[in-house]
């Protein structure tokens, strides 16, 4: 009979471990909101969200520059990383010899494993060096002096593009592999070339998976902290809205939190949690979009 009792105890314990994840998500949500909401009430949602001045010493907490900085850097990172990632995935599924795949796939795994501070350090020297020589060389006459440090949205976006590659490659790879062979064979049998088959049949068929991959890449870029802090310059100002903005130093929401939490007073802390809420909402919206996409695909 003791075996039966043991079975019951084990089942209960396992159940507790299983709901830990649910509790963690709830706790995380609750704590971020409890700590961050008061600022919105005190200074007004509009002023906090759309205020363009961030000056905690004078109790001015406008998050707008960080929202723009985050969106800007994420957008540029996706612009570079998404075509490259999808391209590599197509290459691996359709073109690459197996021997070459066996080199590229572990390389992608390894890219995913490199710590973000290492990316940051690399960016601080290798990438910033190139960008700053551009800024001070051929572009010098177009850029204001504070846009010539090499710390910029473009620098951060390049690093982020590399960091999100593994996510985009892996998930696009799965999506492309899941396309039924018949599609490809059907197209090839009509005398359509391999490349035409790829971009007219395979990629469209894998579309929802590829979009999911890109959205997850967006999520990673939005949430990245360390690598961005180390290369973006961290100026809490809205960057110029023309092409020179690419070379502007800026600050992301994640960087805002990480940089100032260490010395923030009580109200300042709340403002940083409020930044966290905005970031959290971005991620929730993204996750919902992905869930919807996956569901829609499942229904098909």
């Amino acid at each position: 009979m003791s075996r039966i009792l043991e079975e019951k105890i084990v089942k209960t314990l396992l159940f507790i471990t299983a709901i830990t994840a649910v509790f963690s998500v709830l706790l995380i949500g609750v704590f971020i909101f409890i700590e961050g909401l008061p600022i919105f009430f005190k200074y007004g949602i509009v002023d906090v969200l759309f205020g363009t001045v961030w000056n905690p010493t004078n109790q001015v907490y406008g998050i707008w520059p960080m929202i723009v900085g985050t969106i800007y850097v994420t957008f540029v990172a996706i612009l570079i990383g998404a075509p490259m990632g999808v391209g590599v995935a197509v290459y691996l599924v359709e073109i690459a010899h197996q021997r070459i795949s066996r080199i590229i796939i572990p390389a992608v795994e390894l890219l995913a494993g490199i710590p973000s501070v290492v990316y940051g350090l690399f960016g601080m020297f290798a990438v910033r060096g190139v960008i700053s020589s551009l800024e001070r060389g051929p572009l010098a006459e177009y850029l204001p002096a504070n846009y010539q440090t090499g710390y910029s949205i473009l620098t951060a976006a390049i690093i982020l593009a590399v960091m999100i590659l593994p996510t985009i490659i892996n998930i696009s790879l799965d999506a492309l592999k899941a396309v039924p062979r018949e599609y490809k064979e059907g197209s090839l049998a009509l005398g359509v070339s391999h490349w035409q088959t790829i971009y007219k049949v395979l990629v469209p068929a894998a579309k929802s998976g590829i979009i999911t991959a890109v959205i997850l890449g967006v999520g990673r870029a939005l949430g990245e902290t360390m690598a961005v802090i180390m290369v973006i310059g961290n100026t809490p100002l809205v960057p110029a809205m023309d092409w020179t903005g690419l070379f502007a130093p800026a600050r992301s929401m994640t960087a805002n939190i990480a940089l100032e939490m260490g010395y923030a007073g009580p109200e300042h802390q709340q403002a940083l949690f409020a930044t966290g809420i905005v970031l959290f909402m971005f991620i929730i919206v993204l996750n919902s979009v992905t869930t919807l996409l996956v569901r829609r695909k499942a229904r098909k």
Partner: peptide, 25 residues
């Protein structure tokens, strides 16, 4: 499906938000 959803959600939360939570809690 609730547990799976929570697990997926945890995977998508940025690490700085984990930091904020860890700090507050």
């Amino acid at each position: 499906s609730m547990i799976r959803f929570a697990t997926e959600a945890l995977a998508g939360i940025p690490s700085i938000v984990f930091g904020l939570f860890g700090f507050a809690f």
